[in-house]
């Protein structure tokens, strides 16, 4: 029963593992760049969840053709295309901010920046 739980739902297990790993990196790391990497992993795990839910066992791409009757659901995949674009935009805004922070503080470490602000 346990093996069935793992085999049938393994995409979701991976998604949850990645989600937790990403969220942990965001919370734990004080390096601003690594936080963004964590955020990316977190978002990607959600994409995997969406893609997994659209997959139908034995289903093909939704193109009507003789001999194929089972199709995967294309809608979650299309939604995730949009979400990937959003994620790229978020990452690029975040990276731009990190570059600017580095220029103004000469550091990308959250704790060091806090120290600099306290000294002011």
């Amino acid at each position: 029963m346990i093996s069935a739980l793992i085999n049938d739902l393994y995409a979701y297990w991976i998604s949850v593992l990645l989600m937790m790993a990403g969220l942990y990196i965001v919370i734990d790391h004080s390096n601003l760049f690594k936080k963004l990497v964590g955020l990316n992993i977190f978002q990607t795990s959600v994409f995997i969840m969406f893609i997994a839910m659209g997959k139908v066992d034995g289903g093909t791409a939704p193109i009507i053709e003789k001999g194929y009757t089972v199709f995967s659901n294309p809608l979650p995949h299309v939604l995730i295309l949009t979400a990937i674009v959003v994620s790229i935009a978020t990452t690029s805004v975040g990276l731009a901010l990190v570059v600017k922070i580095n220029k103004h503080y000469q550091s990308v470490d959250e704790q060091e920046i806090e120290k600099i602000e306290l000294q002011e």
Binding site: Q43, V46, F50, P76, L97, I101, E117
Partner: peptide
């Protein structure tokens, strides 16, 4: 220059919030 850090923190928190909403939408769609 503190505006940069404020924006960065908002970005991290805001993205986590929006992604949580996305997970919610995904589960409902499922």
């Amino acid at each position: 220059r503190k505006a940069l850090m404020a924006a960065y923190q908002y970005l991290i928190m805001g993205t986590i919030g929006a992604t949580f909403i996305l997970i919610g939408i995904g589960l409902l769609y499922m």
